[in-house]
């Protein structure tokens, strides 16, 4: 029996950004939450492995570390087909950075899922975009890891992974237990997440079996304090000034292109590694 652990983060909907100016962290309690799109793809990958009869029996545990409201994404994971949902939550875990998050998830897997064969994460969350938790977790568990996977295939005692990195398509094989992060990709590819009818989530809510674990249940030291022990701490969050007051032209195409080369001909030619004498207009000749 293969035990797959899927690590799922709840992220805020991008349209809302409630930051706590005092602690410099996201006020997740007041944000409208959703399952991180990359984690959703990781769950989809697990569900497809489970559905494939040649994999043999598979059990899926969805785990999330977060505030109490993060249980929503676990109910959703259950509705989608995860066998178990576990929420790791405790006031002392608040403010965990990627490193502390990996430590907490690592503790759960070491102490409570010794039979874990495959750990799946999203490659990068849509809010903090660090791409760090997966590789840090693998290092913490001392297991091999492959990032940015597009396709998985279970073999005997190992897994074959296809991924695109830095202009290469790589076919890799990795011994299990191991960790794979699932990449974002085009909408129409293999791990396009399945759709849940709302009734499905509601039904999962009614079954009501999300396991909640606090610091003590997890086996973390009583002095554990994620905010204090995190090697990075967000001090300030602000909006970058990105709007430019550029020149936007309308009108006759020829005229616009001429103006463009009057204004930017030098820049264009120097980027091309050529000298531009002066830009001459045909009508001037």
């Amino acid at each position: 029996m293969l035990h797959i652990i899927v690590c799922i983060k709840q992220v805020p909907m991008v349209s809302e950004l409630p930051w706590d100016p005092r602690t410099g962290t996201l006020k997740r309690e007041t944000a409208q939450g959703m399952m991180d799109p990359a984690a959703r793809r990781a769950l989809e990958a697990a569900l497809q492995i489970k559905a494939d009869r040649t994999s043999g029996p598979v059990r899926i545990t969805a785990v999330s570390m977060g505030p109490p409201m993060a249980e929503e994404v676990l109910y959703e994971a259950r509705a989608l087909g995860a066998d178990r949902g576990v929420l790791l939550t405790d006031p002392c875990m608040a403010g965990a950075d990627t490193c502390m998050t990996a430590v907490i998830l690592g503790k759960f897997i070491k102490n409570h899922c010794p039979d874990a064969g495959l750990i799946l994460c999203g490659s990068m969350s849509s809010d903090s975009e660090t791409a760090q938790v997966g590789p840090q977790l693998a290092e913490d568990l001392d297991i091999p890891a492959i990032g940015y996977a597009r396709r998985l295939e279970l073999l005997d005692g190992c897994i074959r992974v296809e991924r695109h990195v830095d202009d290469f398509l790589e076919l890799m094989e990795m011994d299990l237990p191991g960790l794979v992060t699932i990449d974002h990709a085009g909408e129409s590819d293999r791990y396009t997440p399945r759709y849940v009818a709302l009734g499905g989530v509601e039904a999962a809510f009614n079954t009501g079996n999300i396991q909640v674990m606090n610091r003590r249940a997890l086996g973390l030291d009583h002095a554990f304090n994620a905010l204090k022990h995190s090697p990075t701490k967000i001090m300030d969050v602000y909006s970058p000034v990105t709007e430019k007051k550029g020149r936007v032209l309308t009108g006759a195409v020829k005229k616009m292109v001429d103006t463009l080369f009057d204004d930017y001909g030098k820049i264009i030619s120097s980027a091309m590694g050529k000298d531009l004498k002066t830009h001459d207009h045909e009508e001037d000749k």
Binding site: T130, A131, Q132, P135, D166
Partner: peptide, 22 residues
């Protein structure tokens, strides 16, 4: 680079360092 992003967190854990991407 994607490879750099995959390696950096592993290096950080081994050096007991903080890690930050991007």
């Amino acid at each position: 680079s994607e490879t750099g992003k995959a390696v950096a967190p592993r290096v950080a854990v081994q050096l007991e360092a903080a890690c930050a991407t991007e």
